[in-house]
Computed example of a mutant assay.
Amino acid sequence: MTSLFDSAIPHPHGYRDVDVHQLAAVPTTHASLVDVREPSEFDGLLGHLDGARLVPLATVLDVAASWPRNADVLLVCRSGGRSAKAAAQLVARGFTRVMNLRGGMLAWNTAELPVVRPPLGPPPTLARVLDELLAGLHRTVAPESPAPIYGQGPSREALTALLDALQATPPTTARDAPGFERLLRECRDLLSVARPGESR
């Protein structure tokens, strides 16, 4: 039987990338699941993987000092960026079987895979994500103009494309740049857990 590490995609920095579907299909009983987000994220909207251990990125190298260098370690974060950084750090410290969950908890939630999270009620609808985005854009870009009227939202793909475009080219008129970045981040989180057709 091929292990998760053996079937993962090699990365130039020495660790391997694991796709969410690949992880969901293989039992992780032989890998340490390590979530490198902050505690508020671990128990927040995106939740965490069952069996994951919280080790925030700033503490990974100190905590990992006692781990076996040849053990399978799978790192997880919100989008795969911080966990990739942690993976590269562990490889540099001599760990030989390090993996990164590509796309992180955003991809895991978007794929509708099982998540451990506090009860939050029903997931938001795609229309709610659009409403949140429009309301936030109104607050950060043009608060003096009349608020838009909100309604039924487009598809997940259309919302993702809109968020990608806003991330790539932020409006120059945004009065609160950190607020705008926070808005995009929150909308991506909402979008990953949103389900079409459910009540608002």
Rank of each mutant, 00 (worst) to 15 (best):
P56V: 05
D43P: 00
V26E: 02
F42K: 03
N70S: 12
R182G: 02
L75N: 07
T172A: 01
L45Y: 04
L130N: 13
L184Q: 07
H11Y: 07
R69A: 11
R78I: 05
L130Q: 07
G51I: 10
N100K: 08
A86I: 12
G44F: 06
L45N: 06
W67E: 11
F95M: 05
A107M: 09
I149W: 03
P146D: 08
L101R: 14
L190G: 06
S32K: 15
P171W: 04
T125H: 08
R53D: 05
T125N: 07
S7P: 02
A88V: 13
V115K: 12
A88I: 10
V141M: 00
S3Y: 00
S3L: 00
R93P: 04
V20Q: 02
R200F: 14
P148N: 11
L133G: 05
T140E: 12
R182N: 02
H11E: 14
E198A: 10
P146C: 08
G153P: 01
G121P: 00
S40C: 03
E38L: 14
D62G: 03
G81C: 03
L190P: 03
L166R: 07
M105W: 04
N100Y: 11
E186M: 08
L183H: 13
P12Q: 10
G44S: 14
L130I: 01
G121H: 10
A161R: 11
R182C: 00
G197I: 11
T59N: 02
A64P: 02
A127H: 03
A92K: 13
P170T: 12
P123C: 10
F5G: 02
R175I: 10
W67A: 05
R97S: 06
H30M: 14
I149N: 04
Q22K: 12
L190K: 09
H48G: 06
N100H: 12
P27C: 02
V20W: 01
P27E: 05
L49Y: 07
H138W: 13
A127Y: 01
L4M: 12
T169D: 14
E157W: 07
G103R: 10
P39L: 08
A84W: 12
L45D: 09
P146G: 09
A88R: 15
C187M: 03
T28W: 06
S79I: 15
H138M: 07
R128M: 14
V98I: 06
S155D: 04
P148H: 10
